[in-house]
Design a protein around this nucleic acid. Structure first.
Length: 805
DNA sequence: TTGTCGCGGGG
DNA sequence: GTGTACGCGACAA
C-alpha cells in the first residue's frame, strides 16, 4: 500500500519493527535496541545519523567558507563540512543545516553569532527561540529517519520491570532505604532487604543498592516502572547512592542514571518542600541509556484529566478504583512502614510486593496510551509518557511533518495580546426535574475545526487539520477492531490503547491552538473562532430543543440536560434529539447520551441524577468532597434519594434521624471526623502557631503528642466545647477508639447550614425552613410536611440567536 | 465577599 | 539546559 504524505506525518515512514529504546549522541552515533514480537531476543544496533538544526539564515555560517556546502554538493558529507538545504515557503526557519557531529555544527553557529553580536556566545539557547531550532539527539535521529518506537509490538512484548523502595522516611538526607521489592512481566519477583546479609547501617544500605542495580542489569528490562518513580524512588535512590558512594549503573550502555530537564505537562508538582534545592529535586526527571523510565502517576493524571472520576491519584486508591487490588492485599500506613518492618518484616515484604504488582496493573491498564503515542511521534517513549499532548506530542509531529515536506517552519508563536474566549455555561433552571435527558455533541471542538477547516494561520501545509482528520478516521477503525477482538486479548488491548492515544491527541488540538508561547503553531484567533462556533452550536441546540417541548435545565460547552413533558416515551425523547441533530452540519454529531428519572439541579456543574434503575449519581464539589465529614455525604445520599422520588417525608426523616444520631451521639465519631494530612513538621508548625492556629495540629497537640511525622494522616474532629480533637487510629489508619465526645451542636449546625443547604434549590424558602427547621427551636409556623413538593425554578431563557455569551 | 496559601504523591 | 501547572478548598481578613 502506498502511504500518503499525511500518513507519514502521523506514523513516520520507516517501518523498522520492534524498536524498544533509542540512545543518540551528539557525535552522530545512535544505538537502537529492538525486540521481536513474541520472543525474548533483544538486539542492539549501531546507526549513524547527521545531527541537524534549523536556522533562519546562513549568515552565521558563511565564515566556514568552502566548508559550507549545499547538501547535494560533493564533499558535503565530509567530517568537517556543514551541509545546508533551503526549505520551501515562508517561515522563520528556512535552512536545514547538518554536520557529521553536532559539536561541529553548534561550534560553527556559535562562532558566527559571536562575531556578528561582538560578544562570546557559548550556548545555542542563549541566542533565543527565534535564532535556532534544535532537538535532543534522539529526536533528531527519529525525525531524520522517520522511525518510531514499538512497530509491530504489543504492550506486553516489552520487558517491563517494576521496583519499589521502602524507606525509613521521606527525606533522603536523613532517611534510608531498608527494602526493595522487584518484579517483572516475565514472571520474576523478589524482595531485597538490609537485614539478609549480616551487615548493618550504611554498609547494609550500600550493599542493598548494589544488589538492586545488579539485579536490574541481570533482568535487563526495556522499561522500568513505578508509581511516582520520578518524584520519589529515583531521586531518593540517586541521593542515597550519592551519599553512600555507590554508582547507579542502571543503563544498557554508558551506565549512569542522569537527570533530564522536567517536561511541561504532567511533571512532578512544585511541592511543599522547604527550599529551592529540594524543589528542584522534586521536579526532576531521570533517564538512562537503553531503558525507558515510566512513572505510572503520569498515566493516572493523563487518564483523570479527562475522566475526573478517581478518588485520588495514589497507587492504592487507583488500584482499588479499578479493581486491581488483590483480596489479600496488605496495607500499611506510610508513616508506619519502618516501625512495622522492625516487628513484622513478613508483613512489609508482602505489602511491598503488593505495591509492585499494583504498579504493573496500573501501567498495563492506563499506560497503553503513551505506548501507542510512541508508535506515532518522534520522541522517546519516556518523554511521551510525561508530556502534555499539545507541546509534547502534536508539536513534534508537526515539526517532523514540515521537514518531511521540505517546508520552512515558523518561529514559535507568541501571544499578540488577543483575549482567548471560552465556552458557554448556562443554568436554565434549578431544583428538581423529572424525565431528564442528556444530549451532547461528541468531540465538539475538533469537530468544529474539521467542519469549518479552522486551523492555525501559520500552518501553510494544513498539517494540524490533516493530522486531526486522520486521527479521527483511524480512531474509529481502531475502536471497531477493538470491539471485534476477544475481550482480554492483546489485539484488543493494543487497539483500545491506540484509540485512547488518538482521543488524547484529537482533544488536545484545540488546546494546541489556544496556547501561544507554548506551541509552535498556536493561533488564538483560530481558537476563538472554534469557541464562537461552539457557543453558536450550543445556543442552537438549546433553542431548538426548547421549541420542541423540552424544559432546559443546564447547558455546558457541548451538551444539554433537559426535561420532557409527562407522558413522553423514550422514543419521543430520542425523536427530538434526532430532529435537532439534523439541523447541525454533518461533522457535528449530536448524540443521545442518557436518560434519567429525575435530577436535582443545584448550580452549574453541580447536580444529582437518579437513573431509571434507581442508581443515584452525585456530581460536582457541592455534593462530593474528599475532605467532607462522612456523615454529611451519608445524609445527602439518603435525602436526595428521597427527594428525587418526591418522598418529602423521607427527606425529613433522613434529616431528623441524622440530627438525633448526632444529638444522642449514636453516630460513630469517625463519621464526623475529617481526614487531614499533617504536611508541616512539628518545628514548622510551632514556628507559625502564634500567628495562625490550625485545627489539625491543635488536635494532635491536644491529644498529648508533641511529635508527628511530616505527611502523616490523621482523623480530626471537634470535641465538646469546640476543642479540636484527634481520633486515635491503628497502623492502617482505622480508628482504634470511639470516644463519642464530639460537639453535637456544632455538627447539627453543619448538617443544616452546609449539607441540607444543598437541597435548598428544590424548595420555596418557607418549605425549606419547615423541612429543615432548627430541631432545638422548632418553627411555630410549620406547614404540614405532606403538602410540600419539590419545585423547579426557571433561571434564564435560552440564548437568542447570534447573542450567545 | 475577597484574597492568600497550600495541596496533590512517595515512606 | 530553563522555566511557566492547575484547579480547588480552607482559612483569614
Amino acid at each position: 500500500m502506498q502511504a500518503s504524505l499525511e500518513d507519514e506525518w502521523l506514523w513516520g515512514w520507516d517501518a523498522t519493527p520492534g524498536i524498544v529504546s533509542v540512545w543518540a549522541e551528539r557525535t552522530g552515533r545512535a544505538v537502537v535496541w529492538r525486540r521481536a514480537a513474541g520472543s525474548d531476543t533483544l538486539t542492539r544496533e549501531e546507526d549513524r545519523f547527521r545531527p541537524w538544526l534549523l536556522l533562519p539564515a546562513l549568515d552565521d555560517l558563511t565564515h566556514l567558507g568552502a566548508r559550507l556546502l549545499p547538501e547535494e554538493a560533493p564533499g558535503a558529507e565530509l567530517f568537517d563540512s556543514v551541509a545546508w538545504r533551503e526549505l520551501t515557503g515562508a517561515g522563520q526557519f528556512r535552512y536545514l543545516v547538518s554536520a557529521s557531529d553536532s559539536r561541529t555544527l553548534e561550534a560553527a553557529v556559535l562562532a558566527g553569532a559571536s562575531a556578528r553580536l561582538k560578544r562570546q556566545i557559548t550556548r545555542l539557547a542563549d541566542l533565543g527561540d527565534e535564532a535556532a531550532l534544535s532537538l535532543p539527539p534522539e529526536e533528531q535521529y527519529l525525525v531524520a529517519t522517520g522511525r518510531t518506537y514499538f512497530g509491530g509490538l504489543a504492550f506486553d512484548d516489552l520487558h517491563r520491570l517494576q521496583f519499589d523502595l521502602e524507606t525509613t522516611g521521606l527525606n533522603p538526607a536523613q532517611h534510608s532505604i531498608f527494602l526493595v521489592a522487584v518484579r517483572d512481566n516475565r514472571g520474576f519477583s523478589a524482595v531485597l532487604d538490609v537485614a539478609e546479609r549480616g551487615l548493618d547501617g550504611p554498609a547494609a544500605e550500600a550493599d542493598l543498592i548494589r544488589r538492586l542495580v545488579a539485579l536490574i542489569r541481570q533482568r535487563d528490562p526495556d522499561v522500568i516502572e513505578n508509581h511516582n518513580l520520578h518524584g520519589f524512588d529515583l531521586p531518593f535512590l540517586a541521593r542515597r547512592a550519592e551519599l553512600l558512594g555507590v554508582t547507579l549503573a542502571l543503563g544498557r550502555i554508558g551506565g549512569g542514571l542522569r537527570r533530564r530537564p522536567a517536561s511541561r505537562g504532567y511533571g512532578p508538582w512544585r511541592g511543599a518542600e522547604a527550599d529551592a534545592s529540594e524543589r528542584d529535586e522534586a521536579r526532576g526527571r531521570y533517564t538512562v541509556a537503553g531503558r525507558e523510565l515510566i512513572d505510572t502517576l503520569d498515566a493516572v493524571r493523563r487518564y483523570d484529566f479527562a475522566a475526573r472520576d478517581l478518588p485520588g491519584h495514589g497507587l492504592k486508591a487507583v488500584a482499588r478504583h479499578f479493581g486491581l487490588a488483590s483480596p489479600d492485599r496488605e496495607y500499611v500506613a506510610g508513616a508506619q512502614v519502618y516501625q512495622t518492618w522492625l516487628v513484622d518484616p513478613a508483613r512489609v515484604r508482602h505489602y511491598a510486593l503488593d505495591d509492585v504488582n499494583e504498579a504493573d496493573g496500573v501501567a498495563r491498564l492506563l499506560g497503553g496510551a503513551a505506548f501507542a503515542l510512541a508508535r506515532m511521534a518522534p520522541r522517546r517513549y519516556e518523554r511521551l509518557a510525561d508530556a502534555g499532548p499539545a507541546t509534547g506530542v502534536l508539536d513534534p509531529l508537526l515539526v517532523r511533518a514540515y521537514l518531511r515536506a521540505g517546508a520552512a517552519l515558523p518561529a514559535r508563536s507568541v501571544s499578540d495580546g488577543v483575549q482567548h474566549s471560552g465556552a458557554s455555561l448556562y443554568l436554565f433552571a434549578a431544583g428538581v426535574a423529572t424525565r431528564v435527558v442528556k444530549a451532547d455533541v461528541s468531540s465538539l471542538y475538533p469537530s468544529l475545526m474539521r467542519q469549518y477547516r479552522i486551523g492555525p494561520a501559520s500552518d501553510r501545509l494544513g498539517a494540524l487539520l490533516a493530522l486531526v482528520d486522520r486521527l479521527v478516521e483511524q480512531r474509529l477503525a481502531a475502536k471497531r477492531r477493538a470491539r471485534a477482538a476477544p475481550p482480554g486479548s492483546r489485539e484488543r488491548h493494543t487497539d483500545e490503547a491506540l484509540s485512547a492515544a488518538m482521543k488524547i491527541l484529537v482533544n488536545s488540538a484545540y488546546g494546541y491552538l489556544a496556547a501561544p508561547g507554548l506551541t509552535r503553531f498556536a493561533d488564538v484567533h483560530a481558537a476563538n473562532e472554534v469557541t464562537r462556533r461552539g457557543r453558536a452550536v450550543l445556543g442552537l441546540l438549546c433553542r431548538e430543543l426548547a421549541a420542541r417541548g423540552a424544559t432546559l435545565i443546564e447547558g455546558d460547552t457541548d451538551g444539554v440536560y433537559f426535561a420532557v413533558p409527562e407522558g413522553w416515551s423514550e422514543a419521543d425523547e430520542r425523536r427530538i434529539v434526532a430532529e435537532v441533530a439534523t439541523l447541525l452540519p454533518p461533522l457535528i454529531r449530536l448524540e443521545f447520551e442518557g436518560r434519567y428519572a429525575a435530577m436535582l439541579s443545584h448550580e452549574p456543574k453541580n447536580y444529582a441524577l437518579l437513573a431509571w434503575d434507581g442508581a443515584l449519581t452525585l456530581r460536582g464539589v457541592a455534593f462530593r468532597s474528599s475532605r467532607a465529614e462522612p456523615f454529611g455525604e451519608i445524609f445527602l445520599r439518603e435525602a436526595i434519594a428521597a427527594l428525587l422520588i418526591d418522598d418529602i417525608p423521607g427527606v425529613r426523616r433522613a434529616y431528623l434521624a441524622m440530627v438525633e444520631a448526632l444529638q444522642r451521639r449514636t453516630l460513630a465519631t469517625r463519621l464526623v471526623a475529617a481526614r487531614v494530612r499533617l504536611s508541616k513538621t512539628p518545628e514548622r508548625y510551632l514556628a507559625t502557631r502564634g500567628a495562625r492556629r490550625e485545627a489539625s495540629y491543635e488536635a494532635v497537640l491536644a491529644s498529648g503528642r508533641t511529635r508527628w511525622e511530616q505527611g502523616e494522616h490523621a482523623l480530626v474532629y471537634r470535641a465538646t466545647g469546640g476543642q479540636p480533637a484527634l481520633l486515635p487510629t491503628t497502623d492502617d489508619g482505622e480508628p482504634s477508639d470511639d470516644p463519642r465526645d464530639y460537639d453535637a451542636t456544632h455538627y447539627i449546625r453543619l448538617l443544616r447550614e452546609t449539607f441540607a443547604a444543598r437541597l435548598a434549590r428544590a424548595f420555596t424558602p418557607d418549605d425549606f425552613a419547615t423541612l429543615f427547621d432548627n430541631p432545638i427551636q422548632p418553627s411555630l409556623f410549620a406547614s404540614p410536611i405532606e403538602t410540600i413538593h419539590p419545585t423547579l425554578t426557571a433561571r434564564m431563557a435560552p440564548p437568542v440567536e447570534g447573542d450567545e455569551q
